[in-house]
């Protein structure tokens, strides 16, 4: 219930509460003993030797948490994983960001991190796909690739200790995102997965779950084939009404899930979308309280059935 702020009537409140309790009972005691706040002592077995990782420090011979979060242990390594913090980049993460500045040889991107990320001109594929060194002319033409406020998808290349996250666009599927919506959710809701790019074929929609909590829902673009330099293709075509509606529907589903604080992955999002389709709910009503409650109940049901299945 914590901080879900919805105008609920009495029955809805009870139903939501029940659903959330059910969820809690499923997973409740997994982490309860492991969560720490700043300055909590982390119990460890000193005889075996301990490796202290992120978010811990040594104080008077005890391992003390320096962050709020959950204690994670890998063999003898102990570290604290934060729950609600800004996005902490890791090499290889797929992120979505917004260009805030065009600087010499680089773009600066807002990625929900404590610092802006840098996308070097040389880390971008040239629009014509030719492999060559970047020239001064390329630098002058940087605005033809991205300008301020463009939404860009990229991969974290490295994150040096001193800050300044370096991004890169490994292939043609990275780059500017157009014709769609950018949603921001708390980054902890997006778990790292094998796939962050999703193409929902029957809807003609691309879904990119950025690890930094920026989520892109937009019209599907065929991965631009670099071999064909075709200006005509780049001319903006109209996005059809259905696609727009679909985009909104998916976006709203994500909004609902994020309000409820559920982890976002393709399966859950699609299920929520299907639920709304089945109920024949107008897109704008998806953000109403009733749908929230329904989604919560549905999710509780799904997880508990999954749980029993696993146990059985």
């Amino acid at each position: 219930m914590r901080d879900i702020q919805l105008p609920l009537n009495q029955t809805q409140k009870v139903r939501l509460q029940r659903a959330l309790q059910q969820l809690e009972s499923l997973y409740g005691n997994v982490h309860s003993g492991n969560s720490v706040t700043v300055a909590d002592t982390i119990p460890v077995n000193y005889d075996d030797g301990v490796l202290r990782g992120h978010g811990t420090m040594d104080r008077d011979g005890q391992v003390v948490a320096t962050l709020c979060g959950v204690v994670e242990r890998v063999n003898k390594l102990v570290y604290v994983r934060t729950l609600r913090a800004r996005y902490k980049p890791e090499v290889g993460d797929i992120i979505v960001g917004r260009v805030v500045e065009v600087a010499p040889k680089r773009w600066k991107l807002e990625i929900n991190c404590n610092q802006d990320a840098q996308l070097m001109l040389s880390s971008m594929n040239l629009p014509d796909g030719i492999q060559r060194r970047r020239t001064a002319v390329d630098e002058l033409n940087m605005r033809s690739i991205f300008v301020e406020n463009d939404v860009v998808c990229a991969e974290v290349r490295n994150c040096p200790n001193e800050g300044g996250v370096q991004l890169q666009a490994r292939s043609q599927k990275y780059g500017k995102l157009e014709k769609g919506q950018l949603l921001t959710v708390p980054p902890y809701l997006v778990k790292r997965q094998k796939q962050h790019f999703h193409h929902l074929e029957q809807d003609g929609v691309d879904l990119i779950l950025g690890c930094n909590g920026f989520i892109w829902v937009g019209e599907h673009v065929e991965a631009r084939d670099s071999m064909i330099v075709d200006q005509v293709n780049n001319a903006p075509g109209e996005t059809s009404l259905e696609t727009r509606q679909k985009i909104c529907q998916i976006a709203n589903a994500i909004r609902v899930l994020s309000t409820l604080g559920f982890n976002l992955n393709l399966e859950v999002i699609l299920e929520t979308v299907n639920l709304s389709t089945k109920l024949n709910l107008p897109i704008n009503e998806m953000l109403g309280s009733e749908f929230h409650v329904l989604v919560a109940e549905r999710e509780a049901e799904r997880r508990s059935s999954k749980n029993t299945k696993r146990k059985g």
Partner: peptide
């Protein structure tokens, strides 16, 4: 198939037996 912490360590090691060395490291 998401690479975890230990995997990230082993990723970096290419000149020695990556599994044994990583385990050795994580065992303190």
């Amino acid at each position: 198939d998401v690479v975890e912490l230990k995997g990230k360590v082993a990723c970096e090691i290419s000149s020695a037996d990556e599994l044994t060395l990583t385990e050795l490291m994580f065992n303190g």
